[in-house]
């Protein structure tokens, strides 16, 4: 229960951060999403042994972090939480990748280099995802995607899913409290019962999702009238142009 509540607070904090003014927050969402997507494509497409280019491209991420309200401590915490999978890859990669690189008079296992570039790419991808969440409200992200010609129903799904996370976490907290209050398993949930609990969560999620959507509609929700300031201004063009130039410059040369 504690972890569900902790996650709920994390989400609330991110939501609050996205509404606080910062340089990055003032950029048009469509422009921001386009730049970040371009950056991610450029980053992922770098050769797995090209550590220098990967590091150089990371400078863009750190410039963006400085333009936002994202704290380095929060960023590091999130990276640590998400790191187990990537660390497994880093540990086992030198065993799988047995190429040898000659560096001056030394020979290095290429597995270590590709593991390091993957780690840097992971840090960058996490940072970019966090930057979008903490500098743009979900409604603005959805509207930005809609402006980038993503179908309206998909943009609505994003808003709905995000809104639903709060209810879903509250549901998890309630269910865990209910299990504990009945003295079940000394307050711990048995793994074998997880499938029933999870399936009931999802069955409820369908009905609740529908109710949440109706509730949003009954209060005038419509993708068209999200009152995000969506006009492209000079600063948005400048951000788009300069960022794309910087990314391409580092990527192509």
């Amino acid at each position: 229960m504690k972890s569900a509540e902790k996650n709920l607070h994390y989400l609330i904090n991110f939501d609050t951060l996205s509404k606080q003014g910062c340089v990055l927050g003032k950029i048009n969402p469509a422009s921001k999403i386009f730049v970040f997507l371009t950056f991610l494509i450029a980053l992922v497409s770098i050769n797995k042994y090209d550590i220098l280019k990967t590091l150089l491209l990371s400078s863009f991420t750190f410039a963006m972090i400085n333009m936002s309200r994202l704290k380095y401590s929060t960023f590091i915490k999130i990276c640590v939480v998400l790191s187990p999978f990537i660390l497994l890859f880093v540990v086992f990669n030198p065993i799988l990748d047995k190429n040898i690189f000659a560096f001056y008079n030394y020979s290095i296992n290429a597995g270590y280099i590709s593991a390091l570039t993957t780690l840097i790419k992971f840090i960058n991808t996490t940072a970019i995802s966090l930057l979008i969440i903490t500098s743009t409200t979900v409604h603005e992200i959805a509207y930005g995607l809609y402006k980038l010609k993503i179908p309206g129903f998909m943009a609505i799904q994003i808003i709905l899913m995000y809104r639903f996370i709060f209810l879903f976490l509250s549901d998890i907290i309630n269910t865990t409290e209910s299990i504990k209050s009945r003295g079940g398993y000394r307050g711990n949930i048995k793994w074998k019962d997880m499938k029933q609990i999870v399936s009931s969560f999802f069955a409820r999620a369908i009905y609740r999702g529908e109710d949440v959507y109706y509730s949003m509609l009954s209060r005038g929700f419509n993708l068209q009238n999200l009152n995000a300031d969506t006009r492209f201004k000079l600063k948005d063009f400048l951000f788009l142009f300069l960022s794309i130039c910087y990314i391409l410059l580092l990527r192509l040369f």
Partner: peptide, 18 residues
């Protein structure tokens, strides 16, 4: 929907913002 405001039975589903 602008004219008719509805308060649903289940309050949790209506309070979806943080």
């Amino acid at each position: 929907r602008e004219t008719v405001g509805i308060v649903f039975q289940n309050t949790d589903n209506q309070l979806f913002m943080p």
